[in-house]
Design a binder for these strands. Structure first.
Lengths: 181, 181
DNA sequence: GTGGACATGTAAAACGTTACATGATTGA
DNA sequence: TCAATCATGTAACGTTTTACATGTCCAC
């Protein structure tokens, strides 16, 4: 039920197509949400049917038509109402931590490799968040002020990745100690 | 697809009923997974049908019978094989951060209240994780060694909560500055 | 001429949530 | 006597994932 409000939020900031939205999910809210293109298209259809979104088709030379969605007044009202309610609980799903939890089935080398792979991924994530952050810091100060809260969510994402990376590095050090296990 | 391995992992450490499992999810892996009792029962039935779990009914005075599940050899083998594979990507779902992302629909007071509520929840979570940690540190050193990797996942959960709490406190300070926004 | 980005969709399967259903025991 | 805990389940519904499907343009 939260996906629809994530969609409304991004379209409230700037209208766009399903395809656009998918990329914007990856680029700007990946630190707290993700969704496939199929989820986008279905949600866009539903929101349109319910009158929360307007749709204008924009013909493009060579490429398929783009369906540009934007919030209706009712859409903006629905988003505003939801934003002011207590949020549904967060959901954490970390398959990697299940694997460590069952880590008595891993050799020390396997555990090291597994942690190292995750560490690489989290470092790449941190880099991409830092890049986003740079973009924000070099953007129009008026926009920065308007979307100050949105920017704070990115800073949380950055700190979360740093925490993960520190933990991963500590793990590798501990797994490298010859007396351990 | 990961739920089944979370179930196998917990039953591998100690056999138990669906009801037991549900509580163990809440008590020992809530920092990276959660599931309802219906999910447990359905998954247990499936795993039993597929021959990965054994089931023995244990009559109890007064209470309904307990169905105690434990891993078969094939179950243990399936878990071991999965644990050694690259894990599926983690899924982050944080409705609260969507609300902040759409925070231009919030007054400063509403934002403060919202952050404060989340902060309270995360402090409670941290407390419960620290309590779990204390229990581990006072348990049999042999068990501590055996489940050393499992314990490390809890330490990550603790650090993640601390990061969140620091961020929330910083947010409240910034939202309290009269020049902000 | 091949692979990637653009652009949208259907269908089925798997997974997750909510509501409903039962029934005993224990403690306030 | 009321609510909580123990213990298991069905049914319906909603969400998410995976596979299939199509077609253009552009750069290498």
């Amino acid at each position: 039920m939260s996906l629809r409000y994530a969609v409304l939020t991004l379209l409230d900031i700037e209208p766009g197509s399903g395809y656009d939205l998918k990329r914007r999910f990856e680029r700007s809210v990946s630190h707290f949400w993700s969704a496939s293109h199929q989820q986008m298209y279905r949600e866009l259809h539903r929101l349109h049917d319910e009158g929360l979104l307007d749709c204008t088709e924009q013909p493009q030379a060579g490429k398929p038509d783009k369906k540009i969605y934007s919030l209706t007044d009712r859409g903006r009202e629905a988003l505003r109402a939801w934003v002011q309610q207590p949020p549904p609980a967060q959901k954490i799903r970390e398959p990697f931590l299940i694997q460590l939890f069952a880590g008595h089935h891993l050799s020390r080398e396997q555990a090291q490799d597994a942690v190292q792979r995750q560490l690489d991924q989290h470092r790449a994530l941190l880099d991409s968040y830092l890049e986003q952050n740079e973009k924000v810091l070099h953007s129009d100060p008026k926009l920065q002020e308007q979307y100050w809260l949105a920017h704070q969510t990115l800073l949380l994402g950055i700190e979360a990745e740093r925490t993960w990376i520190e933990w991963g590095e500590k793990m590798l050090r501990k797994l490298g100690e010859p007396d351990k296990q």
